[in-house]
Structure formats: C-alpha cells, structure tokens
C-alpha cells in the first residue's frame, strides 16, 4: 500500500504587514500635524461671523463654529497641539518611570521600598481628581495638564522597568559581564537598558491613545489648552453648548480623536505582537 500524501499547512506571518500599515498611518498623522500650517484650506483663527455655525458643505467640509471659523482647518491645526503634547507626555513618563524603575530594581534595599511605596500612592490617586488639584494650585493650561498627567502616570513604567531589571540581574549574561570586570554603569547601559527597553516601548505605544484621550478630557473640562488655541478636547468643549442645535459642530474634533487614538492603539498592539517572539512567527 502506498503511503497517503497530504498538503502541508502553511501559516503566513501577518504581523509584519500590520506593522508596516499602522506604522505608515501613524507617521502620516505626525507629518500632517507637523505640516498643519500648510494644509489648512482656511485660516483657522479667521472669524467670519456672517458665516457662523454653517452646516457642512463643499466650502466647509465640517462646517464652521460659532465665530465662523472653518472646523476642518481648526482640527488640522489642533492636531499639532493634541498629538505633540501627547507624545511629549508619553516621552516624559517613559523616561522618568524607566530611570526610577531601573534604579529601584538595580539598587534594591530601602530606597527601592520607599520609591515603590510613593509610586503606590500615585497609582491609588484618581487621575482626574489629581489633575483638578494641580490645576487648582498651578492654574489651568496645557503645561500644567501635562505635568498633572505625568505625575500620576509614571509609576506604571517604574514598575515595569523595575521588574524587568530584577529579571535581568539574574541572567547568566549579566553575571558573565560582571565577571568580565564591567562596572555598574557599563552593565546598565550596555546590557540592562537595551534588553528591557522593548516591553517598555510597547507599553508607551499602547499608552499614546489613552494619554491623548486623557489630555483631551482635561482640555474638555477646561483644564488643558486655553482658547483660542485649537486643541481637539477644548474644541469639543467650546462647542458643547451648541450640540443640540448644530450637532455636526463636534463631529470634526470627535472624529479626529477617534481616528488618532485608534491608529496609535492598533500600532501599539502590533508592536507588542511583533516584539513577542512567540507571536512574531504567526
């Protein structure tokens, strides 16, 4: 009897394709916000009261606000504030959290316990309440909103960095490096940081969406960007009162937040899959 022949199952690796697609989308978004001044069809700050609260039309795709400013132009200009303040915020918490976490994990002992209890305190604080408190003390404004969010968001990164550093300390290659006569700074810079940065960066990618929402939320409450600066959250807030009469007026900033958060979240997910060798092969 001849042996049965069967077709092999071949599973294609789609993570790389996803990474490229979402990566390009995210880069496009950032480029858009960089070049926003040249992309706007109208001056985003030009008031035209005769044409206020206009419905979406050929001239004004998303309509105009109560001062007759073109919504599309304002959303495009607002992207710079929204996206860059988010990226700045994420960069701050990643850097601060990582430095504290690596220090705690490497050093251990009392200082580790103290810093980790402090981070527990921040983790237990409701974010918005803290931001309100900061705004109350330092006043509103974008910078203070970023400061408030950074103050309560770094502990997550510190915890990841700390546990990763603890794991690294036990690896044979770090012990080999120690035996090779490498000092603390060298070991941290050459071996520990490059090996722990992956999971931390993945977390920051996943956080971009969340942070964008939180910043927009603070601006919506009037604690972030101040008018007339175009920012998506504050734009929604400004026009909130008109929502019942001219419902399209919050459409543009809402959509902008929705789409950017979605792109960054999908990118974050994909980066996480790509960084994990167990899912990379699938």
């Amino acid at each position: 009897m001849t042996p049965t022949v069967r077709k092999p199952k071949i599973i294609k690796n789609s993570v790389r394709t996803r990474l490229i697609v979402f990566g390009i989308l995210a880069v496009l978004l950032v480029i858009c916000s960089l070049l926003s001044d040249h992309l706007t069809p109208y001056d985003p700050y030009l008031q035209d009261l005769s044409n206020a609260k206009a419905a979406p039309s050929q001239q004004h795709v998303f309509g105009t606000d109560r001062y007759g400013r073109d919504m599309l132009s304002r959303v495009i200009v607002g992207s710079r504030t929204s996206i860059f303040s988010t990226l700045l915020l994420v960069a701050i918490i990643t850097a601060v959290g990582t430095v504290i976490g690596v220090f705690c994990g490497w050093h251990g002992k009392k200082i580790d316990t103290v810093l980790m209890r402090i981070s527990d305190m921040f983790l237990a604080f409701p974010g918005l309440v803290f931001a309100l408190a900061v705004a109350g003390v330092l006043g509103g404004g974008l910078h203070n909103a970023i400061f408030a969010l950074a103050a309560i968001s770094w502990p997550k990164y510190a915890r990841i960095a700390r546990s990763q550093t603890l794991a690294q300390k036990e690896t044979p290659y770090l012990r080999a490096a120690r035996l090779s006569g490498s000092g603390t700074v060298k070991m941290l810079a050459k071996h520990v940081l490059p090996n722990i940065i992956g999971p931390i960066l993945v977390t920051s990618m996943l956080d971009i969406g969340t942070m964008m929402m939180e910043l927009a939320g603070l601006s919506f409450l009037g604690l972030g960007a101040k008018p007339p600066i175009a920012e998506w959250g504050s734009m929604m807030s400004e026009n909130r009162a008109l929502f019942t009469t001219v419902p399209w007026i919050t459409l543009a900033p809402g959509l902008a937040i929705f789409i950017s958060v979605m792109i960054f979240n999908l990118l974050g997910d994909t980066v996480r899959d790509y960084a994990d060798p167990r899912t990379r092969g699938r």
């Binding site: 049965t4 069967r6 199952k9």
Partner: peptide, 10 residues
C-alpha cells in the same frame, strides 16, 4: 500545532 502536518505516510 497549527503549522505542523503529516505530509506523507500513515
């Protein structure tokens, strides 16, 4: 697993 197959034989 998902990618393994007995391609020939019984």
């Amino acid at each position: 697993g998902p990618s393994g197959t007995v391609t020939r034989g019984d």
